[in-house]
């Protein structure tokens, strides 16, 4: 609730900081925004391909936070982690797209609302 009440002042300070110094917190807030946009896409879309794209966006938001903290602490571990996230995301995209193709062959649709076999 405090957050909500202070949001106008937060917004004002954010606007005032344009052109000012960029700190680690700027990158963390941006990564949260990108993650939130991806989360919105995952929940609201029905097209399986677009949901997969929103997932990639969420992974990228996390990557941004990793690199920001890696720089903040002067430690390369964060960037190594991002490397592994990118490798896993590539594998995930390949398998998920293969599943979508198989689903399209069986059902003639990539609408996730049509996949109800596992519904109790």
């Amino acid at each position: 609730m405090d957050m909500l009440l202070s949001s106008p002042t937060l917004l004002a300070s954010a606007l005032a900081s344009i052109g000012g110094e960029i700190t680690t917190s700027h990158y963390i807030v941006l990564s949260a925004l990108i993650f939130g946009v991806g989360l919105f896409g995952v929940i609201t879309r029905k097209n399986a391909v677009v949901i997969l794209m929103s997932l990639e966006l969420m992974l990228n938001g996390a990557n941004l936070a990793f690199v920001a903290f890696s720089r903040h602490h002067g430690n390369l571990q964060g960037q190594v982690f991002v490397f592994f996230i990118i490798a896993v995301a590539a594998a995930e995209a390949a398998v998920a797209l293969a599943i979508i193709i198989a689903m399209n062959r069986v059902k003639g649709s990539v609408n996730l609302d049509d996949a109800t076999e596992l519904k109790g």
Partner: peptide, 22 residues
């Protein structure tokens, strides 16, 4: 497929996450 569903839920969960981090 274009008709989005759960827009309120999507907006609420995204806003809650962003508010948490901020």
């Amino acid at each position: 497929m274009d008709r989005p569903r759960g827009t309120t839920l999507g907006l609420a969960s995204a806003a809650a996450f962003i508010a948490l981090i901020v």
